[in-house]
Simulated scan of single mutants.
Amino acid sequence: MVFKAAMNTKEQLLRYLKKEQGRFVSGEKVSSRLAISRSAIWKQISRLKEEGYDIESSPRRGYALRSIPDCLLAGEIREGLNTRLIGRGPIFHFQQTDNTNNQGKALAYEGAPEGALVIAEEQSQGRGRRGRTWFSPHSQGIYATVILRPLIPLSETPKLTLLAAVAATEALETQTGLPIRIKWPNDILANGRKLAGILTEIGTEMDAVDFAVIGMGLNVNVPQASFPSDLRYPATSILIETGRPFPRIRLLQSWLEALEKYYSLLLQGDFDNILSRWKFLTDIVGSRIAVEMPGRRYIGEVQDVDGNGVLILKESDGALQRIFSGDVTLLTV
């Protein structure tokens, strides 16, 4: 499969219409500026209308952009995005899909380049850790997956989840002003309630990392009453926490920018700074916790988090346990 990275004709046309700020521009002028035929312009205008852009067409005056849909479309994501890699390659947009990580893995196996982005307006089978469901209503959240191809040992891939969580936390704090924290290993909390989650999956080839897909589900404009009854207390959204709706595009851009920053640090061998930031945002070292795992429950005090994000837990008898995954509950006594 051939993956196109450069801005395509449709995106160039959209950017041109935006610059005109609602004024009509003639088909002849667009044709000359973009070096495409009048029939090609009409074809791309039709595609933009199908995506939800309100474009007024007049035989004598040309075309004018009237409104922009609240959709996470490629042209909207790239405009104002301050990255060099992530989001600069192909962007795959779905109105609905099973989940973006599944799509990302399929595209990665087909050769999608590093930095490619998968976006969905709705997921029918949104997933969290350990097969849990992520509630993914249409146009009310961000369901995104980034494809990366890091040249790191397989043993170091847990670092990707940590850096993605740090990136999400910093992006959300910057954009919303909310107090955001990380719950080990990959939940993002606002005022103690689950706002977002990170899911990293790895593709290997000959015991080496072929690709990683990092998915984020973020509850943006989900009203309290929309959550399923069993999720209404643990789950929250930016709308619930702030009392007002938020533009999804800028939230997504902010996460992609922070993700690229921390991914670059990882590749430069500077993971210590990422881990230090992660520890600060989790504030879990020294806490007494219970960890639920399949067939086992551990209780103890967190001694440290190692360079791969593994919890070092000290039980009451002094035994040290290395906890790679599990459900954590903070114990107050």
Rank of each mutant, 00 (worst) to 15 (best):
G243Y: 10
Y263K: 08
S229C: 09
E241Y: 06
R297I: 14
V220N: 02
S276P: 03
S254A: 10
A235Q: 01
W255D: 01
G217T: 03
A258E: 10
R288I: 13
S226E: 05
P223M: 06
Q268P: 00
L267M: 15
K279S: 11
L252A: 03
E257Q: 08
R288F: 11
L267Y: 15
A235K: 01
E292H: 14
I289T: 00
S276C: 14
D270N: 14
L251V: 12
W255H: 12
S237L: 11
S287V: 14
N221I: 04
P245Y: 02
T236C: 10
L281F: 05
F246S: 09
S287F: 07
Q268L: 02
S226L: 13
R297S: 09
E260T: 15
Q268G: 01
T242G: 14
A235I: 08
S237K: 09
G286Y: 06
R250Y: 05
R288E: 13
P234L: 07
R296E: 09
S226W: 05
A258N: 08
G243T: 12
L252W: 02
L231Q: 02
S229Q: 12
Y298N: 10
D270F: 10
L275K: 04
P234W: 07
I284N: 03
M293Q: 14
G243E: 11
I214Y: 02
L259F: 13
K279N: 12
T282V: 10
K261W: 14
L265E: 15
G217W: 01
R248D: 03
V291D: 01
R248L: 06
S229W: 13
N273R: 11
W255I: 14
I274T: 01
Y263M: 12
A235E: 01
G286N: 13
N273H: 09
R288Y: 11
R248G: 00
L251R: 04
M216F: 07
I240H: 00
Q253N: 08
L252E: 00
R277T: 00
L252V: 13
V222T: 12
Y263P: 00
I240T: 06
L275F: 08
L265G: 07
D283A: 15
I249D: 01
S276V: 08
N221F: 04
I214P: 00
R288M: 15
A225W: 00
E292M: 13
I274L: 03
L275A: 05
N273T: 13
P234C: 05
Y262C: 02
W278C: 04
L256S: 05
V222Q: 04
P234T: 05
M216S: 05
E241R: 12
N273M: 15
L252H: 03
L252M: 08
L266F: 09
G286M: 04
N219Y: 06
L281Q: 07
L259I: 11
S287L: 15
R248M: 10
N219F: 04
V222W: 04
G269Q: 15
D270E: 15
L256T: 08
R244M: 09
P247T: 06
P234F: 12
R277L: 01
K261D: 05
V291M: 03
S254G: 05
M216D: 00
R250Q: 09
P223W: 14
